[in-house]
Amino acid sequence: MRTFLGIDVGAVSTDLVLLDENNDVLNSVYLRTQGQPIKMLKEGLSIIRKENQGISLEVVGVGTTGSGRVLAGVIAGADIVKNEITAHSVAALYLNPEVRTIFEIGGQDSKIIILQNGVVVDFAMNTICAAGTGSFLDHQAYRLDIPIEEFGEYALRSENPVRIAGRCTVFAESDMVHKQQMGYKEEDIIAGLCEAMVRNYLNNVGKGKKILPTIFFQGGVAANSGIKKSFEKEIGYQVVVPEYYQVMGAIGAALLAREEIELNPRPSAFYGFELVERNYQTSGFECDGCPNHCEVVEIMVDGETIARWGDRCGKWSLGYQAIR
């Protein structure tokens, strides 16, 4: 069977999908990166291999995206390495060409993408602050000792959300402690947090953007029904959470790989599922060639260096040219 593999290595999660020739999702894997992108990538690939035991798979194209896209591209042998904005918009547009707005909230960053007639016309990412991201919610859930998965249900039960400052995680936290000590109900505080996060997102990332339906909400935070509800309350439109909201980046990467291979036909650079048995090591050193002291990273497979980056001047760079 001809298939396309999409890999999204993010700060918090590593996602993989395998699409068949009708672009239907055959397998989708969502793993926590836990600071070990190579290990998780290999684990994701072995899960896909196991799920397809006995089926002969031909991977025709591989695309990588996410903040770890370059590393993933080198490890897996990618045909295309693309940024998350393009990947997320391609996936959303494939599901619904009418999409005008995408809210994408991941672990470490959040984005808004504005589309018109099937192309991206504007986008924004969070800049200095992480208050409108998944890590913020994770952190607050931990503080309240509530599993993050149940956060949304708590919020939905609330009838009177309390107001919490969403400008900054530190202040949100002190606000929350204060509200707890005043005796407000837990679900009202959680709903207040969801509203604070949405407000912060719309005021920072969504500042000056014209938000029109159809609106897609994707990324890990879309699992939180409380946030979805707060968005709808704040902007007055329905917000759609697509079925594969968690792995939309990976789906986009797979679609982009397909596009790349079809428009520039060639055999895939994929190393095959056997790569999970290869032994990858990384090492680093500080270059002392100039006052910048760049931290250079080396990626090695079975003792042989396959890629090197991290230097500003490019004298060490290897195995990875300009990103397509």
């Binding site: 393009t86 192309v119 990412m125």
Partner: peptide
């Protein structure tokens, strides 16, 4: 910064390409 640069250039280039009907086949 890399993500922003790439996304910005992609946005411009894909817009042009798709307007000129070089869209993917599916």
């Amino acid at each position: 910064i890399n993500t922003r640069i790439e996304a910005f250039l992609d946005m411009i280039r894909r817009k042009k390409r798709i307007e000129n009907s070089l869209a993917p086949s599916w």
